[in-house]
Simulated scan of single mutants.
Amino acid sequence: MSQITAEVVYKNFTQLATSQRAKFFALLAEASVRSENFSHDDVFGHLAGDKFTAVEAAKYLEVSMSTFRRHVAQGRIQASSKIGRSQLFSTKVLKAFKRSLQDVKARNTSRMR
């Protein structure tokens, strides 16, 4: 019987579709609630240097593609690189932008009270 190594698991993980990666993290998060508590960096720290496609970035930000494209066109989100016609967006930029969206939403909610 062959030994499963971290390298093999990681290689297989990187070949998963985005939806399956999300499912993996959901399972991991569910398990952590039952036992240990992992920090955001424990779970997602390895993604710090990753780049997202526009579709992945829109999903991460929980906005539609048209809204995401509008943010890019208005300069609110900058692409970190391009491959052909495709733009890639850094995790750091998306994380900061998502926080700003949450701050605006929180301010608007508190004003309505």
Rank of each mutant, 00 (worst) to 15 (best):
N12G: 12
N12A: 15
F13C: 07
T14S: 12
T14C: 12
T14L: 14
T14K: 12
T14Y: 03
Q15W: 03
L16V: 03
L16C: 14
L16K: 12
T18Q: 09
S19P: 00
Q20R: 10
K23F: 07
K23S: 08
F24E: 04
F25H: 15
F25Q: 05
F25M: 14
A26K: 12
A26I: 09
L27Q: 09
L27V: 02
L27M: 09
L27P: 00
L28R: 04
L28D: 00
E30V: 03
A31V: 05
A31C: 00
S32N: 11
V33H: 02
R34Y: 00
S35E: 11
S35V: 05
E36D: 08
E36T: 06
E36K: 09
F38E: 01
F38S: 03
F38I: 07
H40W: 11
D41M: 08
G45C: 11
G45E: 13
H46P: 07
H46C: 12
H46F: 11
H46M: 10
L47Y: 13
L47H: 01
A48E: 14
G49T: 12
G49R: 09
G49S: 12
D50F: 13
D50P: 00
K51M: 11
F52T: 02
A54L: 10
A54D: 11
E56K: 07
E56S: 10
E56Q: 15
A57M: 05
A58P: 01
Y60W: 06
L61K: 02
E62I: 00
E62G: 05
V63S: 05
V63N: 01
S64N: 09
S64A: 12
S66L: 12
F68W: 00
R69M: 13
R70T: 11
V72H: 09
Q74D: 14
G75C: 10
G75Q: 08
I77W: 04
I77C: 08
Q78N: 14
A79P: 07
K82R: 15
I83C: 05
S86A: 15
S86M: 13
Q87T: 13
Q87V: 07
Q87R: 15
L88W: 09
L88G: 01
L88C: 04
S90A: 15
S90F: 06
K92F: 07
K92W: 03
V93R: 08
L94A: 04
L94R: 01
F97R: 03
S100W: 03
